[in-house]
Write a protein that binds this DNA or RNA. Sequence first.
DNA 1: AATTCTGTTCCATTATGTGGAACATTTTGT
DNA 2: ACAAAATGTTCCACATAATGGAACAGAATT
Lengths: 259, 259
Amino acid sequence: MSNHAAGDGTVGKAIAVLDQIAVCERPVRFSEILKESLYPKATLYRLVQTLTNQGMLNYDEENGTYALGFRLVKLAHSAWRQSSLAPIARSFLDLLATETDETLHLAQMNDGQVLYIDKRNAASPVEMFSSAGKTGPGHCTGVGKAILAYMAPKDQAKALTRQSFFQYTKNTIITENALKSELVEISKTGLAFDHEEHEAGIICIAAPILNSRGRAIGAISLTSTTNRNSIQSLKAHTETLKNTAMKIAKAAESWQFPN
Amino acid sequence: MSNHAAGDGTVGKAIAVLDQIAVCERPVRFSEILKESLYPKATLYRLVQTLTNQGMLNYDEENGTYALGFRLVKLAHSAWRQSSLAPIARSFLDLLATETDETLHLAQMNDGQVLYIDKRNAASPVEMFSSAGKTGPGHCTGVGKAILAYMAPKDQAKALTRQSFFQYTKNTIITENALKSELVEISKTGLAFDHEEHEAGIICIAAPILNSRGRAIGAISLTSTTNRNSIQSLKAHTETLKNTAMKIAKAAESWQFPN
DNA sequence: AATTCTGTTCCATTATGTGGAACATTTTGT
DNA sequence: ACAAAATGTTCCACATAATGGAACAGAATT
């Protein structure tokens, strides 16, 4: 008799509450949560209480507001180390950063969305969660398209259904068919581009990180602005980028079971 | 009749499972979780299943292992932006980094533990285990002591009970009384030190970030190695560090309700 | 002092989660 | 090849734990 999306059980509901609070930019009051919530007041109240004394939410007594708690940050750190490519890719990215002196991204795909896992900034160094954990669309980012191009057909199809095909800029690809044929192109060359498709003035080249069966487990990209570079000039880095992707892939392969 | 620590309800149990998986460095099998778990097989099984199809856990079909899922990373990103000092402190840290050219940390305290929120790396990167989401002890880190020194007495007492007083190095303070008197010293000067108390060869100076009532809401530290610096030489940065802390405090104060 | 808005508690009802045990599947040993 | 052990999955009678309508309490507005 239940329906709401795909929410299983009580923990499903609790997590949904977290999600709801996550989309708010700033700490929220109970009533604000309630307003948007599917659940009745008393139920929501209990959920929020439970989450709070679990440290998943943080209650600010001053203002009576709730925000996502630090326990999440702590857990995420473990997640990041345990199931992302970041720890493996780290040294290779450092090297690539010094070689190219451009902004780099490491990303993986999660449910059709691009999830940025690590970043190297051209000018200022290391800024962790500012980018790690950030998500982006698949259909109009270099990393997104690179990964999509190297997914198993079944997974690709599923991921494509998750794309919004929102038109961020005038270059954004907004139809599934157009995207599909671009993906075919990408899978021939092993290189994806972002021609200001997500943000005006921002371009990038991206290469997939492949497992032994030739499926993408992530991607890296090299980003610049149209002021400083063109796609053509970025192409100078093609081999370095691809090489780094390959090295990460190899490292990931042999990283299984270090025990 | 229930007891286990302070686990409320089903979601409490679910979160406990996450925690348990977090402490494992690498992906784990179901049976490994079961071995350590308080819960009976069938119960645990259902919890893990629920968490998995919520994206809080990630199941690797290849090896039949579970790891913390990307949804956590995504949530943590929101948490970081929403309830940490990092977004506010960012620009000030950037400035401080260029001014001092040393390694910087921004940390907050969570349940007696130091939680690192952001970091700036010196040009010659000290390879240390610390980045956002990483936790550390309170009793033997600069940021930890800086924050403890400026907590409300009640909170401080509670936080002190959470300290392990583990002796990391020969300089580590290992008794509550010794720590307490150091905290008094710190609260007079507004500056805390780490004399290789957590890791041999690593020293730092730290300053608390205070709210309007003079309580710590976080701390920043400037770290170096005994090869390159001494506590004395680090003291040259005292004013710059304190100033930055004050600026962050002020920014935090006026950041409430940007609506 | 009356009205609204927000947050908290109560409690009978029932849906949800529980966990022992049986079953299925894979791995290990001889 | 066969037994034995370890691991993973499903079942179901049972009871705990979540539900939500409604009443209550506190602040904030008017």
